[in-house]
Structure formats: structure tokens, C-alpha cells
Design a protein around this nucleic acid. Structure first.
Lengths: 221, 221
DNA sequence: ACGATGGTTCGGCTATCATCGAACCATGAG
DNA sequence: CTCATGGTTCGATGATAGCCGAACCATCGT
């Protein structure tokens, strides 16, 4: 009786219909709440809660608490790889997921506390991670600083504070992370100073000018 | 309640300890009999028979009758890819594991279904991507073919099959991709034919000769 | 302070399924 | 033909685990 790696344990976590529905819903990298996932899986909140606890315990999902919500997302790319390996067996393609589309302008770019959120904010964060401006523990690299200083954000320009220099904040419309912390605030400030964007009055919308959006996308590469 | 691909059904087949033991035993691509598998899984013949019937019905295993024996093997490379994707989870789960002398050898080079895995397999895949032997969508370039034909792998030498010519398979020890598909198999075959390496009996280890390893590294550049 | 909402815990019900003993088919050897 | 061996089918059993109702805890908005 050979003692191999315990693949049965992980497989069992995926083997339940309710849990597999949840995992499929999270395949795009967004983070969803427990109630949303319970609805998608077709079970009650209590049942979903149990399932999610198992998945988190098995390190298949990661959880992030924000207020009274708990956002669940895949624990990493290796989980997505596993799900894809399973999908190979059934030729059907996964149906698209729908997120509640709210006001388009808000979805695209808005202020979250003091930093940039929405599609543009997520794009910035994604790019920063992929291009190596930030490390896994969210400290800014050499390459990152040279990129940020191109728009006037440098270590010296940041106020001294015990607030974290760089933080990842969960985006409610995108359900993914965007750039927060001191550097997130400084970046948004510079976007306004450079007139790439401005705040619409009495609203959280950040309105990019056409030229500003072009430059912003050019800047993040 | 979304109706996606039925990944739970396949996962459930792997989720049983007896069945997962059998699948692990078949990871080297060999075919084993029902009785052999029952012993490896630690269950009686009757129980094993039931498990094997389920796995064949789910097209996870293929069966071939020869005389009064029935030989079972993995249904294809996609099954091996699935098992490896599951092993990724266990690799970091048990750090204080007794590392027999076989463990480092397994990490360095081993058979995954019918192609090369481990450090050497990952090195080959990495090099192939960086040096432009493969495109992003994993088709072989002109430069790639000229490089592969240096060890005797050419388009004409590959069997005609609907199996993908080139595929990327996730490596559980390295957490990165290695080269799979028809070209992955052909390459491993050539390594043996050239006596650069040989298979250790009763194990998935691929043992390179010193000379073979030197030539292999020279070949990939 | 109070209600509404998101989420978890607990207890009991139920269905599924792995397991094995025993009996049963099929093939090959002598 | 006869026996031994590989493999399957059947039925009973026991454990696991999903499910939901109800009650409970925590947070937010007013």
C-alpha cells in the first residue's frame, strides 16, 4: 500500500457539486461573498458557509474580511490550473459570469478613500505585480521606484507615517485588488496634478481626459 | 445556479483514497492488472474491481484485456496532467518528510506519463519558450524544429494523432511547466535512444549519465 | 439604542458509497 | 475434464458527509 501525496484530500474538496460550482464562479480571479456563492451554488447560507470553511481550511480558497462581508477568492494560480485540468474532461465551455453592472463611469474609475479604484486602478495594480514593480510582500522594487518617479512619486515625496507604504485593497466592482496605501494616494494625487484626470463634483467618479487615459496606459505599459 | 462543466464528477473519481492510490501507481504510464492494483491500494479484489469499473466508465482509465488478465492504464496525458496538478498542493504541505535518496532524484528528473518532468523537464520547457522554439500558443517554430531535429525529433517522425503536438504540463515539484504532448514524448524517447539517460526500474526516476546531462544542457543551450 | 443584514454554529435527518463475505463466470494449465 | 486463478456481481453493513431549520454572533445604518 504505497503512501503517495494526499491527492484524494484535495480532490474531495472539488468533488462536491456545490463546492465545484463555487470554484468555477471564482475562476476569473474575482473575489465573491459567501452569500453570492451560496446563491450560485444553489444551497442555503449555512451550507455554503460549511463548504467555504472546508475550502479555506484546505487552502484552496483564500478569504479576506472587509466590514461584515467576507470575500473569497482562489488561493493561487495553481488552483486555477487544477480546475482547468478538470475542465479538459468535459468539452463544454464555461458560461460567462455576470457581475452587477452599476454605473459605468463608477466601474471604470473612482476614488476609494484616497486612492484609485475601478478598472483603471485594478489595471495599475495588475501591471505593477506582473512587471515586478512590487514584490510578493508588496514592497516597491528598484524598477518600481524608477517607474513611479516618472510621474513624480518618489520615496522622498511620501509623507512619513505609520500607514503602510503600499497596500492592496479589494475592489467592489471588479472584485480584484487595486493599489492602496501611501503610494496609492500619492499616485492618485499626481493624476490630478498632471491633469490626466479630475474628480466629478459630488461623486466618487474619477473622469480621465482622453489624453490623460492614453498617457496613463502608456505609463503603466 | 450555474451549470458549468461537470468537474465534480471527475474530481469525485479521484477523491477516494483507494482510487487515488491506483492512479498514482499508474503515473509512469505502465499498465497494471486489477489484482496488482488492489494490492497497491490496500483493498480486496472485489472492491478494486468496483473502483476500476468506475474509473473506466469515467474515461479516466483505459482497459485492455489480454487472456484472463485485464490491464489498466491512464486514459491519456490529460489524466497525468490532472494528477500532477493535484500533487502541487501536497508538495509544500509536508516539509518534514523523510527525504530518502530517491526524493532528490525524483525532483531532478522523472517520467510524467510519457514525457520528461522535474528540473530537467522544466529547464527544457523554459529554454524552449525563451529561445523562441515555441510560440505563445505552443506551436513549434522554424528555429524550434531545427533544434529538435538535432536530436532526431522532426515533424515527420511524430505519429499522426489527434493528441496535441505540444502541450505544457504543470510540474508538482517545480510548480512550473514542463514539455508534454507528442513532442514531449518523442524527446524523452530520444533521450533513452541516445543513452543520455535511462529509467530506473520500479520507479519514475530518469537517471541521466554525466555525459548525457552535459550533452542535454549543451543541446538546450 | 435598535433593527436589518451577512455569516456561523448546532442538531438531526437522510442518502450516498466504500467495504467485504460469498457466490458466480471465464480463462488457462495439467 | 478438472482444478486453480483472475475477475465480477450481489447483498448487507457501517461510516461519512451534505443538507436544512433554528438559533446565535457581528457589523452597519439610522
Amino acid at each position: 500500500m504505497r503512501e503517495g501525496p494526499d491527492i484524494a484530500r484535495i480532490a474531495a474538496l472539488v468533488a462536491d457539486p456545490a463546492r465545484s460550482s463555487m470554484l468555477l464562479a471564482l475562476m476569473d480571479g474575482r473575489a465573491l461573498t459567501a452569500t453570492e456563492l451560496s446563491g450560485l451554488a444553489g444551497v442555503t447560507k449555512q451550507t455554503a458557509s460549511g463548504h467555504l470553511a472546508k475550502l479555506v481550511d484546505g487552502e484552496v480558497l483564500a478569504v479576506e474580511a472587509q466590514g461584515r462581508h467576507r470575500y473569497f477568492r482562489l488561493a493561487g494560480a495553481h488552483v486555477a490550473a487544477l480546475i482547468e485540468a478538470l475542465m479538459v474532461f468535459s468539452s463544454d465551455a464555461a458560461p460567462p459570469v455576470r457581475t452587477g453592472p452599476k454605473e459605468p463611469a463608477l466601474r471604470k474609475a473612482r476614488v476609494c478613500y484616497d486612492h484609485l479604484a475601478g478598472e483603471m486602478g485594478v489595471a495599475l495594480y495588475d501591471r505593477a505585480r506582473v512587471a515586478g514593480w512590487l514584490t510578493d510582500d508588496l514592497s516597491v522594487t528598484e524598477a518600481g521606484w524608477s517607474r513611479f518617479s516618472a510621474i513624480g512619486v518618489s520615496p522622498e515625496s511620501l509623507p512619513r507615517s505609520n500607514r503602510p507604504q503600499c497596500r492592496a485593497c479589494l475592489d467592489w466592482s471588479q472584485r480584484r485588488h487595486h493599489l492602496a496605501g501611501l503610494i496609492g494616494k500619492a499616485t492618485l494625487d499626481r493624476l490630478f496634478a498632471l491633469s490626466w484626470a479630475r474628480r466629478l463634483p459630488a461623486s466618487r467618479v474619477v473622469a480621465f481626459t482622453p489624453e490623460g487615459e492614453r498617457r496613463f496606459r502608456e505609463w503603466i505599459g
